Simulated scan of single mutants.
Amino acid sequence: MVNRLKILVRSYYQERHAARELSYYKKRFVDAGLSMPNKDNLAEAIKTRLRQRKIYPRAKKQGDLNIFITCSMNNWEVVLPKALSLFGNVNVFSWQSTEFFKCRQHWAKWQNDLNEQMLKKFAKIHTEAPVDILIGYLSDFNTKVETLATIGGKGVIMLNMNWDDKLYFSGSLRGQPRSVAGIVPFFDLNLTNAPESCIKYFTQGALAKFWPEAADPEFHHPYNEPYEYDISFIGQCYGSRPYFVNKLRSHGIKVSCFGKGWRNGTLTNEEMIKIYSRSRINLGFAGVGYSDKLMCLKGRDFEIPMSGGLYLTQDNPELALVYEVGKEILTYKNEQDCLAKIKWLIAHPEDAEKIRQAGYKRALTEHTWEKRFSDIFKLLGILNDFAESDNA
């Protein structure tokens, strides 16, 4: 009961912070007389920004780009080098994920050391062959604006992905930034999985585009194996998740959970993908932080259907932007709705199979990393529509 109360309190404060932050940026946006650009306007804004930086992109064939990617490769990011290799030479600067430090001094030293190493790695690569584009999954916590200014000053197009900006666009914890607001103006384009967050970037004088996560069909693919689990969930055990799962179990639903904090423990990537195929139903949660009301698109929204899994997840309205809900994936509003849909799917295996196949087809057609990056590289003017390079 005490733990449940703590979760509800944390959820309340996170939801309040997110609502206040969005309201603050909306007011600034309106007061500044700004407007959201359409696709053509955004393309022109990018060209203008690049010209101001004296960068005049030359579209290359697929396979000819020189890419510098910098992020912590310990989760979904591991698929990026392989996916990006389709577009050319990929150079990776990675580090292990680091939690917040006990004191600001230790964090500042870590950040300084990390940025020195990043610049050293970039300088070596850029000297050997000019880098066309930097792709980052960076934040104010791990990256200094001086580092971005130095790299950008070499004529490199700057691109950054942000998946936590509904809750962590601005702000700090124990004197350490828990945000991206400080670095976003140093990127030529910021990619967000939250449509409503775009307004925050434009208010900060930056450019942004709604660009959800994706999956790699060579990495996330179906396995022809018999069902072993009725319902499975793969992800960390925190917030309301264990209470939700226990509620389903109390009604006789067999839910097998894997990941940090669950009894079954963590899985390798291969084991995880196989379980998607071995499960009649793959359960999902859309909540941000400790909140169930504050939701965003998740990597598993694309990885599970791409892996051939039948997907039942929380009713996040943004899913309608990427799937035909009810025909390609299913959503639930609460425990009772989830329970009813689980029972229906188990009782109607032929209908469940149709949904599974439709979700797989949609993911394979529209939600690959190759398509995501191809669209962005063309928008930035560095990739043409011709055939692949002879050297690819």
Rank of each mutant, 00 (worst) to 15 (best):
W163H: 07
W163K: 00
Q176F: 07
T143E: 05
G136L: 08
G171A: 07
Y137G: 06
N160D: 14
L148T: 09
S172M: 09
N162S: 15
G155P: 09
G175C: 12
I135K: 10
V156L: 12
D165Q: 06
N162C: 13
T143L: 08
V145M: 06
L159K: 07
K144S: 14
K144V: 01
M161S: 07
S170E: 15
I157F: 07
V156H: 08
K166G: 13
T143W: 03
G155K: 11
S139R: 09
E146Y: 02
K166I: 09
L167T: 01
K166Y: 01
G152T: 08
L138G: 04
G153P: 08
G136T: 12
M158G: 11
K154W: 01
L173H: 14
N160W: 04
T150L: 11
T147Q: 02
S172Q: 13
D165V: 04
Y137A: 13
K154M: 14
Y168P: 00
G175V: 03
E146T: 13
S139C: 02
M158E: 07
G175N: 00
N160S: 10
R178K: 15
I151N: 06
S172T: 10
S139Y: 04
N162W: 03
V180W: 05
Q176S: 06
P177F: 05
K144H: 14
T147S: 12
T147I: 06
R174A: 15
S179I: 04
D165W: 01
F169N: 04
G153N: 08
S170Y: 01
M161E: 02
I157C: 07
F169C: 07
A149E: 15
D164T: 03
V156F: 11
S139M: 05
A149M: 14
S172I: 00
W163T: 08
P177R: 04
T150Y: 13
L167G: 06
T147E: 03
D164N: 11
N142S: 14
G175Q: 03
G136P: 10
T147P: 03
L148Y: 10
D164K: 01
D165C: 00
T143N: 04
N162Q: 11
E146K: 12
F169A: 00
G171E: 11
I157L: 14
I157N: 05
L148K: 09
G175K: 02
L138R: 15
L173V: 14
S179T: 06
I157A: 09
K154C: 14
R178V: 11
D140L: 08
N162H: 15
V145Y: 01
T147D: 02
R174E: 14
D165R: 06
I151A: 07
Q176T: 12
F169G: 01
I157D: 10
N160K: 09
N142H: 13
K144M: 15
D140A: 03
S170N: 11
R178I: 12
D140K: 04
G155L: 07
G155V: 12
S172N: 13
D140S: 11
K154D: 04
V145C: 13
L159P: 05
